[in-house]
């Protein structure tokens, strides 16, 4: 005997389309508005201005001159290949997907870290989301949102949320028990412990999650090209369809450049907290050393 699990799933989708279709239409409209707004900024401004901004962000977040120069040069290569508009369109889609994934994933991760029941429920769901082949999401996504970039973003979010949840939960749960006891022993409320102890110490792990989310979102770009998301995915899909090696390679190279840039910048940002803290500590130490003789002289 055969269980028609697939049929059952399909009928759930049909029911949702028939009854809450208006909801998905609204979401589709909202998401495309947001992506459109980001695109207007990224494409509307002069490429060199954007390159300067991206390189500046790299410098601010990683404090690495080498990476800054590399990003400027790599983006110039994209401009030279004539793929600037497609790259920025892809970047807009990635940024919006990442924003939604983090907005869902990080709070869910915090909740799962603080509540064992939530954790137990969330874990198998995340396994399912991550292990299911991504194309499978695309089919209902197209039903819900039509063709274009919105189903691409929806599928990307489903695929990219798990690491945000997992690494946030892990970062909070791996906190030294004694530190948690110390915070509790001084009578701190749960909210203060979270804000003052758990989240700052989980920062590096959460940023590793952000990095993973970005890389997964970017890896979905080409797949999303299949449902007409455009951008670099469209370029690659077009190259494949027309057996155009040159075009396909150029599209692929632009994806790689975006990936390397986003990866290095976000993994550099992981340690930024420590860098800033030790810098501030040194500064205050110096300030204290400078004022001490003055105070002594005054006293």
């Amino acid at each position: 005997m055969r269980f028609n699990i697939g049929d059952w799933f399909a009928s759930v989708i049909d029911w949702m389309l028939a009854n809450v279709g208006w909801f998905f239409d609204g979401v589709a409209w909202l998401v495309s508005q947001i992506v459109g707004a980001v695109e207007i900024v990224l494409i509307g401004l002069h490429p060199f201005l954007i390159i300067a901004l991206l390189a500046g962000a790299a410098l601010a977040l990683t404090r690495s001159l080498g990476l800054t120069l590399f990003s400027a040069a790599a983006f110039a290569v994209i401009v030279a290949m004539g793929l600037w508009v497609e790259s920025m369109s892809t970047l807009a889609v990635v940024l919006v997907s990442v924003m939604f994934s983090l907005a869902i994933g990080i709070p869910l991760g915090i909740w799962a870290a603080l509540n064992n029941t939530v954790s137990a429920v969330v874990r198998p769901v995340l396994d399912l989301m991550q292990a299911m082949p991504v194309f499978v999401y695309l089919i209902p996504a197209v039903f819900f949102f039509g063709v274009g970039m919105v189903p691409g973003i929806a599928a990307t979010i489903v695929f990219a949320v798990p690491p945000a949840v997992r690494l946030t939960e892990l970062g909070i749960r791996k906190l030294d028990l004694e530190l948690l006891e110390a915070a509790m022993a001084f009578g701190a409320k749960k909210g203060l412990i979270l804000k003052d102890v758990q989240l700052p110490l989980a920062f590096s792990s959460i940023m590793a999650g952000v990095n993973q989310v970005i890389m997964l979102a970017l890896s979905m770009v080409v797949v999303a090209g299949l449902v007409g998301a455009g951008g670099l995915g469209g370029v690659v899909v077009q190259g494949v369809a027309q057996l155009d090696t040159a075009r396909g390679f150029e599209g692929g190279l632009a994806v790689v450049i975006l990936a390397v840039y986003l990866d290095r910048v976000t993994s550099g940002a992981r340690s930024l907290g420590d860098v800033l803290r030790s810098r501030r500590a040194k500064k205050e130490q110096r300030a204290a050393a400078a004022t001490a003789p003055v105070a002594a002289a005054a006293g």
Binding site: D176, E178, L179, E181, A182, A185, F186, G187, P200, R277
Partner: peptide, 24 residues
């Protein structure tokens, strides 16, 4: 009241110090 009791009446010193590594 438990929080107030911990904060004002009874404090604790830990074996492995329990210092917050991200705070001065």
């Amino acid at each position: 009241q438990l929080r107030a009791y911990r904060n004002q009446t009874i404090n604790m010193v830990f074996q492995h110090f329990g210092l917050f590594p991200h705070k001065s």
